[in-house]
Design a protein around this nucleic acid. Structure first.
Lengths: 122, 122
DNA sequence: CCGCATCCGTTACGATACTG
DNA sequence: CAGTATCGTAACGGATGCGG
């Protein structure tokens, strides 16, 4: 298939806003990219790779493309070459902070019994 | 494999609380089960199936088992037969309400341009 | 009927190797 | 350094079967 792609086509499962949010963000990696950008401001491809969860390259590239196409993240130098061209949050992406905060608070309260060495974040 | 199973074993990707939350809830279905229980109080297996997203039976059974094993949901009649034995939220599950609210608010603000007939919920 | 388990084709994921 | 190609594995999703 094409090496370049815009136009992610979404199959929205229903008109429910929660469902639609999960259609986009309901996976194990997308919100971690947002987390890294909240924590660090900008982040290059290889810096994302250094995060402790160690996302694989194809998943990372796919999610960066997806989040970019939805206007959640963007390149810091849109017209530059990819090399050392970092990503940052758009206002849409920055608005995900409360989602991450609530997930973090819930996990610390209700998941610690299953995962004792858990730690704060964001 | 076994018809009965407790003991879901989790591979926590890191000590980050957000990551751990996504290890558990980072998929397209688990939080929709929680949504239905917030909206309706209790819900039987077949009632979950009637939700507009139409989860398939094996996924639903798997998620109900997972959420139960983590103490997020429970049977209304723990010692009764499965038939017409509804599920409800535990305090842990009820505490996920702010997560769903934030996802819903974000989607209504930033996803409506991609999904115009989206609607409120929870 | 209701609550699943099983089967099976399709899609997504994940590790690694490789390229401009 | 920023990805893409490949390929084996796991998850998903629909259909169906089956016991209670």
């Amino acid at each position: 298939m094409g090496t370049e792609s815009e136009a992610y086509t979404f199959d929205w499962r229903s008109v429910c806003s929660i469902t639609s949010g999960l259609d986009v963000l309901g996976d194990k990696w997308s919100l971690l990219i947002v987390r890294d950008l909240i924590a660090h401001g900008t982040r290059t491809y290889s810096e994302f790779r250094e995060s402790p969860e160690h996302v694989s390259t194809n998943i990372l590239a796919d999610r960066l493309r997806l989040l970019t196409s939805l206007g959640i993240i963007e390149r810091t130098n849109p017209d530059g070459v990819a090399r050392n061209n970092a990503f940052r949050l758009t206002p849409s992406g920055a608005a995900l902070r409360p989602v991450l905060e609530e997930i973090g608070k819930w996990s610390q309260t209700y998941l610690k019994q299953f995962h004792s060495n858990m730690v704060d974040s964001v």
